[in-house]
């Protein structure tokens, strides 16, 4: 077994332990905060007998460990429980809202990588020149302005004053959503061969994704620049110059690859953290995503839905981290050969 595969298995196993811990913690936290979930779900007009019946039905009258055991049995069957509020399976709710959030996050992540890294590389290559100064000021502004402020600014400028982009939503009201295969409108409309829906969904996606990505773009540009400048001081770059390698080749390949390692590590955390910021952006742009759903269920003290949402977000975080570690191993042979332990 290659060290990489062994590392992967090791990391996946560790992730399961983390998920189990997260589920326990959330399970308990959701239940110990004040407020009777059954009463909240049924509203003030329900009789005490009705509330009692719901409690019994959902095992809420049992001790928490027993409740947890019931929940684990449920999860093992592939369910995430039912909403106390709508009585819909939580799995179904998440399946509905998660793709919208993931679509937003993937688009933002792509912007972070495709804008942030090149800006940092060019900034380092032309360091201390005008373009570098502009890039650095822009990065600071990007990092220091919260995502929801970016959301409002972009909305005002591009959607309200210039009317270049729609103000909110995933799709124009006049268009039916594409047949759901992945839940990603962009991908589904490609699969359906529907160009009009594709363009409209990209059009709707652009502003919220950019608002979500701004901080990450700035952060990544700064980090890439710092890492590149550091790498430029290494003897192997002096050697590359002494051997006449072209400046562009040194910048895009010879210095880039070693400089990328620290950037990737932080990038993974940044992208995973987008999940948290997504809530505010989803609110500003009326984006029907999981983050909004998560806040709603917390306010309703919708027990299974809270645990289910947090579990899914934790799982996404773990997957993002493992993916980044694998990427780092691909870029950095020293880690690849040490089986992730260098």
């Amino acid at each position: 077994m290659s060290p990489l595969v062994r590392t992967l298995i090791h990391r996946l196993a560790a992730s399961l332990v983390v998920l189990a811990g997260v589920s326990m913690l959330m399970f308990v936290v959701a239940r110990v905060i004040p407020g009777d979930p059954a009463r909240i779900a049924l509203g003030p007009n329900a009789t005490e007998a009705q509330v009692e019946a719901l409690r019994r039905e959902r095992h809420l009258d049992q001790p928490i460990p027993v409740q947890y055991w019931e929940y684990v049995r449920e999860v093992a069957r592939g369910n995430l429980g039912n909403s106390l509020y709508s009585n819909r399976p939580v799995r179904q709710d998440i399946a509905q809202y998660l793709p919208a959030t993931l679509e937003l996050i993937f688009a933002a992540a792509a912007m972070i990588v495709l804008i942030g890294i090149p800006v940092g590389v060019l900034s380092a290559r032309y360091r201390r020149r005008l373009g570098d100064h502009l890039g650095r000021v822009g990065s600071i502004v990007g990092v220091s302005t919260p995502a929801f402020v970016w959301g409002v600014i972009l909305q005002l400028v591009f959607a309200y004053f210039w009317r270049l982009f729609p103000i909110e939503g995933r799709l124009a009201a006049s268009l039916p959503p594409p047949p759901p295969i992945t839940g990603f409108f962009v991908i589904d409309s490609v699969l359906a061969g529907d160009g009009k829906t594709l363009i409209d969904s990209l059009h709707h996606l652009a502003l919220p994704a950019l608002a979500l990505a701004m901080a990450g773009i700035g952060q990544t540009a700064r980090l890439t620049r710092a890492s590149m400048v550091e790498t430029y001081r290494k003897p192997f770059i002096e050697m590359a110059h002494a051997y006449g390698f072209r400046e562009a080749r040194i910048s895009n390949r010879y210095a880039f690859r070693p400089a990328l390692v620290p950037v990737l590590t932080i990038l993974g955390l940044d992208i995973a953290a987008l999940l948290g910021n997504a809530f505010l952006v989803e609110s500003v742009f009326g984006w029907p995503g999981l983050s909004r759903y998560g806040v709603e269920v917390i306010l309703h003290k919708d027990l299974d839905a809270i645990v289910g949402t947090v579990l899914i977000i934790a799982a996404a975080f773990l997957v993002a981290n493992i993916a980044v570690d694998l990427l780092v191993a691909v870029v950095n042979p020293r880690i690849r050969f040490a089986g992730g332990r260098a």
């Binding site: 290494k234 003897p235 192997f236 002096e238 050697m239 590359a240 110059h241 002494a242 051997y243 006449g244 390698f245 010879y254 690859r257 070693p258 870029v331 950095n332 042979p333 020293r334």
Partner: peptide, 19 residues
């Protein structure tokens, strides 16, 4: 550079690219 003129560095381990 690297063609008519080349250079041998003091510390080859750090003068070769690690990646």
């Amino acid at each position: 550079r690297g063609d008519r003129v080349s250079m041998i560095f003091q510390d080859a381990v750090s003068a070769l690219n690690p990646t």
